[in-house]
Design a protein around this nucleic acid. Structure first.
Ligand SMILES: NC(=O)c1ccc[n+]([C@@H]2O[C@H](COP(=O)([O-])OP(=O)(O)OC[C@H]3O[C@@H](n4cnc5c(N)ncnc54)[C@H](O)[C@@H]3O)[C@@H](O)[C@H]2O)c1
Ligand SMILES: NC(=O)c1ccc[n+]([C@@H]2O[C@H](COP(=O)([O-])OP(=O)(O)OC[C@H]3O[C@@H](n4cnc5c(N)ncnc54)[C@H](O)[C@@H]3O)[C@@H](O)[C@H]2O)c1
Lengths: 223, 223
DNA sequence: GAAACGATGTGAATTAATTCACATTCCAAG
DNA sequence: CTTGGAATGTGAATTAATTCACATCGTTTC
């Protein structure tokens, strides 16, 4: 099955919900429960889950632990990735604390910054290195993914360097679009743009056309 | 014209590019230049721009300042919004510094936190208040948008309170989906999910099916 | 054990998003 | 002028995403 990145995104969402915000006493979950939690339609959820090769049981729904296991199998294919934060400023540091506690398959093992006051020390549990050691450590520590938190003016330059050093994927927070050779995954988060969207849909009719807002569904515990 | 939020998102992108990262000496821009910068097709860009009621000139492209003006008109309809950050922890503080410098129509004028060490002082130029004053200030200062940076466990509760206080849009960073009544705009940014996407497309064939990566286009300066 | 229920899985229909392809327009050069 | 060219604007085609609708099936109940 060839996952679109839309499906992919929703699967991570379901997984996060199930692993972290789902009553542990419930062993089964219905498609419409998941749907309600993420504001989607039940058939959408079922479609997404079809990609997993796991099947629910008709009257009961999906067995939670089994479902999670299958999402894991598909999403991270058992691999674990070492991640580096590049640019240990305000955002970089916030991300280090935030991400350290999360998903075990993604480990933030290093940070890099060209400000000497930030490098050669441990920030929030993550060792921060000077940029000079980038290539050495990316290779040596098998860092495959970089979270780019440098100013926009440096973003493309640093990204190129990361790619040359062997990075296979970049999550870019700088508010400039960067270009990478094919073969390197790229995801960009433009926070300003999201904020502007909220502002926009605040003034005009409020709900962005597509999103469903079905009524809340009670998560009935099954005996 | 009824903008889909997809179109809307791209328009903010174009605007950001044009206002901040486009050579000031160029007065015209081609659809294919914009396209190249954001990795989309030229016809996509033209379609998006059609929504503006502004028309480019066939051989020259789009006049930059005029184009920006029209995007402004459509996107923020002249309105300016007051914004508050709720939860002035790591992320909240990073956002305050980051956003203060940006878009003039969105002004961060307050922060709120229930930690007494954070409230009643000015953080990065933004006055931070205790949660008790939320309702009073939202009304008094006409705050319409909230950026939600509280822990997941408090997110829904705080969101409900914000809505009751009169907030019209929320940008949620907590990694829990929240539910709002129709009529209140909602945008959620799930950073973990984005990171997981990068990781995913790092292992499998690298490029998420949909994205184009056309070859770089030189931005030729026109005499 | 059989009938009713209430969920799933999925083909088909619908709707949305994107791309194609080309007529149109306007500038520039001769 | 008039001709050529290079970009726009857009209907039509295509492709992707979502929803509908219902046959199907395991569970429960009686
Ligand atoms: N702070 C936010 O909430 C926020 C939100 C969205 C996007 N962003 C973007 O993320 C990036 C970082 O934001 P920030 O607020 O952390 O800024 P910041 O100034 O606090 O941090 C930037 C860090 O990058 C380092 N740096 C600069 N040039 C570098 C280079 N060439 N190589 C290595 N390191 C370099 C600096 O020393 C600094 O520590 C910016 O592009 C910003 O636009 C920030
Ligand atoms: N730090 C990041 O980079 C990052 C990234 C993505 C998402 N997030 C999410 O953003 C949120 C904030 O993250 P953070 O790293 O800033 O955490 P943090 O603990 O540094 O900040 C949270 C702040 O919220 C305040 N708070 C807690 N409960 C509150 C309540 N009921 N009312 C008002 N204020 C309250 C706390 O006093 C604290 O200052 C979390 O939900 C986190 O999961 C953080």
């Amino acid at each position: 099955m060839n996952l679109s990145n839309k499906v992919m995104g929703r699967l991570t969402r379901y997984r996060a919900l199930l692993t972290e915000y789902f009553p542990k006493e419930k062993t089964y979950v219905f498609s419409h429960e998941l749907a309600a939690m993420v504001s989607l339609s039940a058939s959408q959820v079922r479609r997404d889950l079809m990609c997993l090769g796991y099947f629910g049981v008709p009257r009961y729904g999906y067995e939670v632990v089994e479902l999670i296991k299958h999402i894991n199998r598909v999403l991270d294919a058992g691999k674990l990735h070492n991640v580096a934060v590049v640019g240990a400023g305000n955002l970089g540091q916030a991300l280090m604390t935030f991400l350290e506690s999360r998903r075990a398959t993604l480990r933030i093992i290093a940070a890099f910054d060209d400000d000497p006051r930030l490098s050669n020390r441990v920030i929030n549990g993550v060792p921060c290195h000077p940029m000079e050691r980038l290539e050495e450590l990316v290779e040596g520590k098998e860092i495959r993914i970089a979270i780019l938190c440098v100013p926009g003016s440096a973003a493309q330059r640093v990204a190129d360097r990361l790619v040359k050093a062997g990075i296979k994927g970049i999550l870019n927070f700088a508010p400039v679009p960067i270009r990478l050779p094919v073969g390197v995954a790229l995801e960009e988060i433009d926070i300003t743009s999201h904020l502007e969207r909220v502002a926009f849909f605040t003034t005009t009719r409020a709900t962005p056309s597509k999103e469903r807002r079905p009524t809340q569904v009670r998560l009935r515990a099954r005996s």
